[in-house]
Design a binder for these strands. Structure first.
Lengths: 327, 327
DNA sequence: TTGTACGCGTTATCAA
DNA sequence: TTGATAACGCGTACAA
């Protein structure tokens, strides 16, 4: 069932049928005729052919490191909400935390496979930047601020500073469990904010015991264990993610250290787990879904207008003070 | 840059260029010529035009109720792993738990928008079944067993029976917090398995206090509260999902009821939250990622072979006995 | 307001 | 082994 058959059945040219579906420039008489045939047959134009003709795909590629992360799934949700409203579909490229895969997908999308890309990366290598510049469709980066690209990102610096100040108020000896600083957002910016807070209170960086974990509960547990065993005097622990903090809580609970009396700690992300763990976790809430919506809107704006004005949107945050801190 | 230009530059017909990319039936001489031009220009055939010509999309639509669920995201991951290996892309249709949206997407995919559909539904109405039969591309249902369709589903019945038997061994008064039985899997089957276990031990159904919650921690909390207040004698609580169980634990912890000494309970799903909550939750582990892989393989099989043999795959499970139960 | 004719970028058929 | 030609299904100048 194609446009030719419909035209024949309705007794018009296929151009008229096309107009019926598009600009609508059709006489009432023919409109009725076409409408009847369309209803009888259940005909719908082939999106494929339309897209080939119009040189669009109505597809947005979204590249993510993994799906089992609240941040990611909320952002993807937000993106989907906006895009589905305007007839775009989302095609998912899950890199399983594999940087090579990320490049592969970027490569695959490079031509005209999609009308735009939302990239939810964590680490941006030179290869990324090069490839991103070569890509012929608009790219919006979400979760990180990358110079020279349109971004929607979280205010990690100020959020970290603000939550660190809670720890500092009643703390004496500080521990910091971070993530790789190759991740500018969760790694570098949060650490910077933490140090900024220390400086603000006249505390020297050298008095902080640092370590680095992966983005998992298990890794948080391990690193907390190591840190506390080698520095039992720590009374305040800044964790760069909720998962790390959960792992730390697990370790502290096991060893009988009282939270927050003996050790207070904070997380980042306001995950569901952080809300049910005992004690409840002081953390930073980000508006991930809204971030996704913003990123989608930004991308649409670029696609519609036809030029990438490299806008950067910094999202707000909210510190959630719960019972894992003393203040 | 299209196939015509490449042909011209290489001094061959565009048919030859096409063959170069497809069956490869090209003389060495011309092959070299084409290869050089292709490398110089970075030309890649338009997937859009290829698909229009071949009447395929290389796209699989996957309809999900929400993304922020470990079960869902694991299954989507599994699907993606298999499909990306064979050159298919996944396009995501998130219904935000809205049944109407589910039908809308089914409708949208109905024609030739995608080469196949994986449907991760919870409730199947008559409208679903009708629409699913009308759809012209293969459909695989995941998470539920629906007669007349290819399915990959969990063994909810036996899993429920087995985990219930743990409760029964040391329990006297039973509570059951279920979900709507419109959901055949998580609602009806788990309840059935629970009753089966009761019967096996000669316990009468009437001695069980039942209630129904939504799929959330909050709802689990509310329902547990109501149930325990009206029936304080309950010492064993079967929860149809981990989230519900987490909510129940929260309530029990708040009221100072000891778990499992005073009240033992079980969940379903083996979520990350269930693993960190105190006490750790006795639950059922499902192989969601593998289920996704199986569903993808099944769908591919149907697409390749061209006929839907309505195969059903029942996945295994594993009961994880932790410290929320007495045995 | 309508229809003709062409093009979007491929692949398949067929004859050479 | 190659190339001309006809599809795939649609949108849109342009002319009428």
């Amino acid at each position: 069932m194609n446009i030719n058959e419909i035209a024949k059945m309705a007794g018009v040219s296929r151009a008229t049928v096309s107009r019926y579906f598009n600009d609508g420039y059709v006489s009432d008489e023919k409109r009725k005729a076409i409408q009847k045939v369309v209803e009888d047959t259940g005909y719908e134009p082939s999106v494929q052919a339309q897209n080939l003709r119009k040189q669009v795909t109505k597809l947005i590629g979204i590249i993510i490191p993994k799906l089992q992360s609240e941040a990611v799934s909320h952002m993807v949700d937000g993106i989907g909400i906006i895009l589905s409203k305007v007839g775009y579909r989302v095609i998912l490229a899950n890199t399983q935390n594999n940087e090579k895969e990320e490049l592969k997908y970027l490569q695959a999308f490079k031509k005209n496979q999609v009308d735009g890309i939302i990239l939810m990366g964590t680490i941006f290598s030179k290869a990324h930047l090069r490839l991103m510049k070569e890509v012929e469709v608009p790219v919006v980066v979400i979760g990180q601020q990358i110079d020279g690209f349109s971004c929607v990102y979280q205010d990690d610096f100020h959020a970290a500073k603000e939550i660190a100040e809670i720890l500092i108020e009643k703390g004496e000896k500080f521990g910091y469990i971070g993530v790789t600083t190759k991740d500018k957002a969760a790694g570098a910016q949060r650490k910077k904010g933490f140090y900024e807070a220390l400086r603000g209170k006249g505390i020297h960086e050298d008095s902080v015991f640092m370590t680095e974990a992966k983005f998992s509960i298990e890794s948080g547990y391990e690193q907390a264990k190591e840190l506390i065993i080698s520095h039992p005097e720590i009374d305040s622990l800044f964790c760069a993610t909720d998962n790390i903090a959960i792992g730390a809580i697990k370790y502290l609970n096991e060893t009988g250290k009282k939270i927050p009396e003996q050790v207070q700690l904070t997380g980042f992300g306001d995950t569901a787990v952080g809300q049910v763990v005992t004690p409840s976790l002081t953390t930073v809430h980000y508006f991930y879904e809204t971030s996704g919506e913003e990123a989608a809107r930004l991308l649409l704006e670029i696609i519609m207008s036809g030029d990438d004005f490299k806008k950067s949107i910094k999202m707000g945050y909210q510190v959630k003070e719960k019972s894992s801190t003393k203040r």
